[in-house]
Design a protein around this nucleic acid. Structure first.
Length: 445
RNA sequence: GCGUCGGUGGUAGAGUGGUCAAUUACAACAGACUGUAAAUCUGUCGCCUUCGGGCUACGAAGGUUCAAAUCCUUCCCGACGCA
């Protein structure tokens, strides 16, 4: 029931348009995956998220394991059902938290740095005095919960077990996301660890799939006909209707900024029997493109590739052109909550003084709910409307009204989802290069 | 009219002789945000500056003092109490 079909390839580079089939529906690729870390697209209901054109949401293993607990979500029938999301889902393995709660904790480090930024060479610039909450060992990672200080030990096996309880259609191997400031020697050590963890993740996944789906399970020919009682019982699903469904596992390529390590990782991970591949880790903004290219030239062409945690418009073009099928990023939703929205002419901050009395939508020709005032599925049902003005959004942000986050998030998700889906269409129409040039010309000033 | 308390930067509110251009919060102004520790964080926030400093400021005007937002006098304004 997990399939990837390439519909059309870009001439002269690695880009392609395709379709991923999951037990919960299809994903037309390239696609932007919306991040719903704690089983919620912050500020939006699933219905609103879907209305933005979002096909897939990605939740987080570590966060849901801590709260409300993966077993509870298993009993609820999986996180999609738990949050009332109708489409395909993914979970990240917790590998990113190894970074964000580890070396990056309390520090001013981003996984994407700019080589022109002098500060990036000062690795340990501290913005707090807290000790890291994640400590890495070869067998796994110990975490001190940021919620209550309790100690937890996550191994590749544990991550996969949790992800099976969470029940997403696509799950990820447990990896170590390294900091861009680490030495080559460390990156190499970490890479070996990530490779070992990939193998362990895969073995555990296969074992759990076998247990869940039965010995003669065939992922390509799965038909959803009803859950064998016994298997339902064995997996301890509280709701017998929520039959166990097959899950796909993606391995993760690491290697930091090193060509040698990136290529090595793509070979090692690409040779393992994963359903698809994630490209993770740290990048320099300036050479992200070459890094992605090194990797995708090696990874098996017939399997989907997911560029983890990348989502600036210019990076999306770069990724698509270099053979990436899926992206996820907290950027669009996070900056929206902080008052920044995308426009064709670059990002704008709605909290700037100039928007206080601007009685126009963010973008006049945008048809998202925020700009047009209309939901895509019931256009005209509420009578004439001209959408929400910048002045109103500015007021909501200044007044700290929750709706500010909702409306800004809707616009940004629509913008970014539409952008990637337009890229997909342009690949099919053979107009990708023109589309890219036109967009970037006005977007980057 | 008498008495008491009080008047501090956009606001609230510290400070009651020098370390005060004045704690703090909010507001304002700008910036950041890339597998979410994030409805968060950072910077600026009297005027001028060659970034050393200079100038004007704590209701107003005088005064004491080497030195005053801080002490004294008068005036103006506010709250409360008594007539």
């Amino acid at each position: 029931m997990f399939k990837f079909e390439i519909q059309k390839k870009l001439e002269g580079n690695l880009g392609r348009a395709g379709v991923i089939t999951t037990p919960h529906g299809e994903i037309l690729t390239p696609a932007f995956v919306t991040v719903a870390t704690k089983a919620s697209t912050k500020a939006l209901t699933p219905e609103q998220t879907q209305d933005c054109g979002v096909q897939v949401v990605l939740a987080n293993t570590y966060h849901l394991y801590l709260q409300p607990g993966d077993e509870l979500i298993r009993d609820a029938g999986g996180f999609a059902k738990f949050m009332n999301w109708q489409g395909p889902t993914m979970t990240d393995s917790g590998g990113f938290q190894v970074f964000s709660l580890g070396v990056a904790y309390g520090k001013e480090i981003s996984k994407v740095v700019s080589i022109t930024d002098p500060n990036f060479l000062i690795p340990e610039r501290s913005i707090g005095s807290d000790a890291p909450l994640a400590k890495i060992g070869n067998d796994g990672v110990s975490f001190k919960s940021h919620l209550d200080g309790s100690l937890h030990y996550i191994t590749p096996e544990k991550s996969i077990e949790i992800q099976h309880n969470l029940g997403a259609d696509i799950i990820f191997a447990f990896d170590e996301c390294t900091s861009p400031t680490e030495s080559d020697r460390y990156q190499s050590e970490a890479l070996d660890r990530t490779h070992a963890w990939a193998k362990r993740s895969l073995d555990k996944h296969k074992a759990l799939e076998k247990e869940k789906m039965g010995e003669s399970w065939d992922s390509q020919n799965f038909v959803r006909v009803g859950a064998p009682e016994e298997r339902v019982k064995r997996r301890n699903f509280a709701n017998p209707d929520s039959m166990p469904l097959p899950q796909a596992l993606f391995g993760i390529v690491q290697g930091g900024r090193s060509e040698e390590l990136r290529k090595k990782s793509a070979s090692v991970i690409g040779a393992m029997d994963f359903d698809g591949y994630g490209i993770g880790g740290s990048f320099a903004k300036e050479d992200m493109q070459t890094a992605v290219k090194w990797v995708n030239e090696i990874l098996p062409e017939e399997k989907p590739r997911h560029l983890l945690g990348i989502g600036e418009p210019e990076d999306l073009f770069m990724g698509v052109e270099n053979g990436v099928d899926l992206f996820d990023c907290v950027g669009p939703t996070r900056i929206a909550r902080n008052g920044t929205v995308f426009t064709k002419n670059g990002k704008i901050n709605l909290l700037n003084a100039k928007f206080v009395n601007l009685f126009e939508p963010i973008e006049k020709d945008c048809i998202c709910y925020t700009c047009s005032g209309e939901r895509s599925d019931i256009k005209g049902a509420r009578g004439p409307t001209s959408g929400y003005s910048c002045a109103y959004l500015s007021h909501l942000f200044r007044a700290k009204e929750m709706e500010a986050a909702t409306l800004a998030t809707i616009h940004n998700l629509y913008f970014i989802t539409k952008l990637v889906s337009d890229m997909r269409q342009s690949i099919i129409d053979d107009t990708f290069q023109e589309f890219k040039e036109t967009f970037l010309k006005s977007y980057i000033k």
